[in-house]
Design a protein around this nucleic acid. Structure first.
Length: 311
DNA sequence: AAGACGAAAGTGGTTGA
DNA sequence: TCAACAACTTTCGTCTT
């Protein structure tokens, strides 16, 4: 069963809430307020209604989880009782093997234990959905097994794995946010992110500017109308090929800035720039392109005229 | 005085020879 | 491996509201 954290929108007290578990957001459909954009956990996916469907769905027992350091399972190289019938030579070989196995696995386990603790810390700081945390843990485990952590700070690999997991699940967090949460430098996060996704050949779609809109616009306290206008503008921009090669946060913030302007809820460039983690200059550049290519100039002029008339 | 605008120089990353 | 290149940032002076 899903936990309902909020039943009514505190802004307009409508009960028309939309839960997007993938993005970890609860949005009021009436006024667009993002009530809780950082749901930690919505509970398990599968439910059992009767024994029939239970048999189909409950195929794995307890879900194996990557956030436990050994995925809830362990391996050992035999026990002493297995020694029966081995010759002397083989006995010592057996002990050597077991010693090595022990050393290697404890080294990996120790690392994983530490890393997963760190991963959980960062993830809960950013209030990421459980799915993303699991994914990040999976990625990190793979990275350890491939020996990709050697020579790299564990923290930065954790941050890189989390960033990758966010991108995969279209729950975008900026590099800055990851950097702030993990205490790893921004470039380092980006570097390890690129490294591990390349080495593990994890394919990641380029992030969509629209994915940032709900979070940014709620931070700026903008209405749902403005929010959907911004998404509209961004879609138009994508059709005009104004978006390729540009930073998605820059496009998102410019779209939001224009949308707010058109709906008479003006925010300054600085305000938008701050929540989006870009500079005013970038917003200006994108903004200029948007006006030129989407003929919004006349609409902007109308807004300005209206304002003058009011004075 | 605050916000918007734009030029110039610097940074880090990608690409192609 | 190096140089050219695009996107973005920082900084700063000027114009607009």
């Amino acid at each position: 069963m899903r936990k309902d954290f909020v039943k009514k929108c505190p802004e307009c007290s409508g009960s028309n809430l939309s839960i997007s578990s993938e993005k970890g957001e609860v949005i009021c459909k009436d006024c667009g307020l993002v009530i809780d954009d950082k749901i930690v956990d919505l509970g398990q996916e599968w439910r059992e209604f009767d024994s029939d469907s239970a048999d189909k769905k409950r195929r794995t027992g307890a879900p194996s989880t990557y956030t436990q350091f050994d995925q809830g399972m362990g391996t050992e190289v035999g026990r002493k009782s297995d020694l029966y019938g081995l010759g002397r030579k083989n006995q010592s070989k057996f002990f050597r093997l077991r010693k090595w196995q022990y050393r290697i696995s404890t080294a990996i386990e120790r690392n994983l234990k530490l890393a997963l603790a760190e991963l959980k810390r960062v993830s809960s700081y950013l209030k990421l959905p459980k799915m993303v945390e699991e994914e990040a843990a999976r990625i990190y485990t793979l990275a350890v097994q491939r020996g990709l952590v050697r020579g790299r700070a564990m923290e930065s690999v954790v941050a890189g794995a989390l960033y990758a997991a966010c991108r995969r699940h279209e729950v975008p967090r900026t590099l800055e946010e990851l950097s702030e949460a993990s205490g790893v430098e921004k470039k380092e996060v980006g570097r390890t992110y690129r490294f591990i996704t390349r080495e593990l050949s994890i394919s990641i779609l380029p992030s969509n500017p629209s994915d940032y809109i709900p979070r940014f616009s709620s931070a700026l306290r903008l209405t749902a109308k403005t929010q959907s206008k911004a998404v509209e503008i961004i879609e138009m921009a994508q059709k005009q090929e104004l978006t390729s090669g540009r930073g998605p946060t820059g496009i998102a913030s410019a779209g939001l800035y224009v949308a707010a302007l058109l709906n008479g809820e003006k925010r300054t460039q600085r305000e938008v720039a701050d929540v989006a983690g870009v500079t005013e200059v970038t917003i200006r550049n994108r903004y200029k392109e948007l006006l030129e290519r989407l003929d919004l100039e006349s609409e902007i002029k109308k807004i300005k005229k209206k304002k003058r008339d009011r004075d």
